[in-house]
């Protein structure tokens, strides 16, 4: 068990290294540090000296992967890649290209992201489970059919429509919530209502259909027939047997998402002007702030790997057959 998780942790290192190599290659393939300096400095202060100074300030004066000027191991270590990778692994994200402290920014913006993402996950799970369970119970009936139609229709609507429609209907027409924005503390409640409702609705159709399929798959299994042969009532068969078995894939599917909740939802945050990590990332991308993007990609990959490990752990807890070796 412990061995398994230690091995998974060690396996994360080459993955994160790979991710770093990829992001570096992507950026430096087409964007030279000179380009970045020009972009950050703006047109007015643009002198060759200023560019050089900016590069030195942000560490971009060194070669990316291979320092031919050095000898021995330092050819590899005295490089931009090595330096920033080791710092990433120490969770020291340094300064953004625009000069702000990334660690502080992330710490500050994580809160709003979670305030939106956690309710979305929980409310969404509750709604989808209730709906799909009810409909699996009624499988084959007219209600099941129309629920299926509704789900497909809900899946076919663009997420943008949910957002725009929600803002227009709930905020502009009914004045139930502000169109966008964010406040700290309890005041945030007013602001999170709309994004949560919209995000839950946008993903509901797909989850309900998936969960329903899982429930029906379990219903077709032999142990369900056995449970009925024992004389259990429909409700006991459903909750005592089917639900518990179907919950395994559902829970593990949810668990893998939990770590990435920290990153927030890019589009939702951008639309509702929520100062979370999602909008942080988008702002950084639009400003071509490589340091921030690099940090976010690293963080995202790390959380993904953590999600995989959590999934394994949840399997271990939920399913007695699973042993990790």
């Amino acid at each position: 068990m412990m061995g398994y998780f230690v091995r998974r942790l060690l396996y994360a290192i080459p993955i994160l290294l790979g991710v770093n190599v990829l992001t570096f290659a992507l950026f430096f393939l087409v964007n030279t540090p000179d380009d970045m300096a020009r972009m950050q400095l703006g047109e007015r202060r643009l002198t060759p000296a200023a560019i050089e100074q900016w590069k030195v300030d942000h560490g971009y004066h060194r070669p990316v992967f291979w320092n031919a000027a050095q000898t021995g191991v330092t050819q590899l270590t005295d490089t931009l890649f090595f330096d920033s990778s080791t710092r990433l692994f120490r969770f020291d994200f340094g300064k953004s290209d625009a000069g702000r402290d990334i660690n502080a920014d992330i710490a500050e913006r994580m809160g709003p992201s979670l305030v939106i993402a956690v309710p979305v996950l929980l409310v969404g799970l509750a709604c989808a489970l209730t709906w799909s369970l009810a409909i699996a119970w009624l499988a084959g009936t007219r209600l099941d059919f129309w629920s299926g139609v509704l789900c497909v229709a809900m899946m076919s609507i663009s997420g943008l429509f949910y957002i725009i429609g929600g803002q227009w209907l709930l905020a502009k027409l009914w004045h139930l919530a502000p169109i966008s924005g964010y406040a700290d503390g309890l005041a945030s409640l007013r602001f999170i209502l709309l994004p949560v409702v919209v995000s839950v609705l946008a993903s509901l159709g797909g989850s309900v259909r998936w969960y329903r399929a899982l429930f029906l798959e379990e219903l077709g299994k032999d142990y369900v027939r056995m449970a009925r042969a024992k004389g259990l009532s429909d409700a006991r068969v459903m909750f005592g047997h089917v639900f518990r078995n179907a919950l395994i894939p559902i829970l593990t599917g949810v668990v893998v998402l939990i770590p990435s909740l920290f990153l927030g939802a890019l589009i939702t945050e951008a639309f509702f002007a929520i100062p979370g990590l999602g909008s942080y990332t988008i702002e950084a991308l639009q400003a071509q702030d490589f340091a921030v993007v690099r940090a976010m990609v690293f963080l995202g990959s790390l959380l993904y790997v953590a999600g995989l490990m959590l999934t394994d752990l949840s399997y271990l807890i939920a399913d007695p057959r699973v042993r990790l070796e």
Partner: peptide, 17 residues
């Protein structure tokens, strides 16, 4: 009043109970 035994004990028992 009716006890029932199925062919595949592997499949007929609930794996998580």
């Amino acid at each position: 009043r009716i006890g029932y035994i199925f062919q595949e004990p592997q499949l007929a028992l609930n794996p998580v109970m």
